[in-house]
């Protein structure tokens, strides 16, 4: 591929990679919050994102509400869903020493949701087609897809929102304290269930945001979610488990790696390359690439 390289092409590769990686990043932030307090990797996050994408699809096709506008409905809905799920499924398990229990509940939830989606919406691909789908800005010959740009904006806004929440509100600070040390946090009177539920709800809330982002960019089917969850886990590990900005940056970095790898190498290798990069990061900087910058911030 080297013979085709031009400056514009490199810029385009980077733009594509960043815009693509944002989707991983936004999924990873949710994972990061849930991991922070409950110490589990919430494997069902990808499936929750897809579920929200379907809800978005429903709101769009049945009520004709613009997908971005539907965030007003979807975010509160997913927050509620998060609180509900936490109290019904994870409340007991979260308190246990053995984190595998919570992990497996998540796996069970994933099995269940995937098939439930198939039953409700069938396995045929679903998509949202609006006037701005596939529209792109073309400044200086660089193509920037408008739905992907919106995805980036949504990711940045939600990262900022989550950070503000964690730093400026009482409950947010409690969540942050609990992420650092749950036992001490409990000793100073923070209820573990409350912080867990809040963190989990925000995690699912972010799945709602990601679902809308995904539904506007991609067509999707019920089995789309698991791959997303895997990629989000990698992003999380690259960026630093338990850090919000790190998760977003990790996702973007992963998107870049994939974009470059599938350009310069045959496409089939891109997965192996991103896993290899991720293993190298794990080996040499297991706390993640972007963690220090967070602690400073």
């Amino acid at each position: 591929m080297w013979e085709y390289i031009t400056f514009g092409l490199i810029v385009q590769l980077f733009v594509n990679g960043i815009l693509f990686g944002t989707m991983y990043g936004i999924a990873a932030i949710g994972l990061s919050l849930v991991f922070g307090t409950m110490r589990i990797i919430f494997l069902a996050q990808g499936t929750m994102i897809i579920f929200m994408a379907y809800i978005c699809y429903w709101i769009f096709t049945l009520m004709g509400i613009d997908p971005y506008l539907s965030l007003v409905i979807i975010v509160p809905l997913s927050l509620l869903l998060g609180i509900g799920l936490y109290h019904i499924l994870f409340r007991e398990a979260a308190g246990l020493e053995d984190k595998n229990i919570s992990l497996l509940i998540a796996v069970g939830l994933m099995f269940l949701m995937e098939n439930l989606i198939t039953v409700i919406w069938t396995a045929n691909p679903r998509f949202i087609e609006t006037s701005y789908t596939s529209f792109a800005f073309r400044p200086m010959g660089i193509n920037i897809s408008v739905t992907r740009l919106n995805g980036l904006i949504m990711a940045l806004l939600s990262t900022a929102g989550v950070l503000l929440f964690l730093k400026k509100t009482m409950i947010g600070m409690a969540v942050r304290a609990a992420s650092e040390d749950m036992i001490s946090a409990t000793l100073v009177g923070i209820s573990p269930h409350r912080v867990n539920a809040v963190a989990f709800a925000i995690g699912i809330g972010l799945a709602g945001v990601a679902g809308v982002g995904l539904a506007t960019i991609y067509p999707f089917d019920p089995y789309y979610g698991f791959i997303f969850a895997l990629k989000a886990i990698i992003s999380l590990a690259i960026g630093g488990i338990g850090s919000v900005v790190g998760a977003l940056l990790g996702g973007i970095l992963l998107g870049l790696i994939e974009s470059l790898a599938s350009f310069f190498f045959s496409g089939g290798w891109s997965d192996a390359i991103s896993f290899a990069v991720f293993l190298i990061v794990l080996m040499f900087k297991p706390e993640g690439l972007f963690v220090r910058s967070i602690n400073k911030a």
Partner: peptide
């Protein structure tokens, strides 16, 4: 492309650069 790939922008850039005039593909519906 690996099964499960969700982004084809790099492939598309290659096609653009190589001035491709026909694409033959086996790809899942979604």
């Amino acid at each position: 492309f690996a099964p499960g790939t969700k982004d084809f922008s790099s492939h598309i850039l290659k096609y653009k650069a190589a001035k491709v005039d026909a694409i033959l593909t086996l790809i899942p519906p979604t």
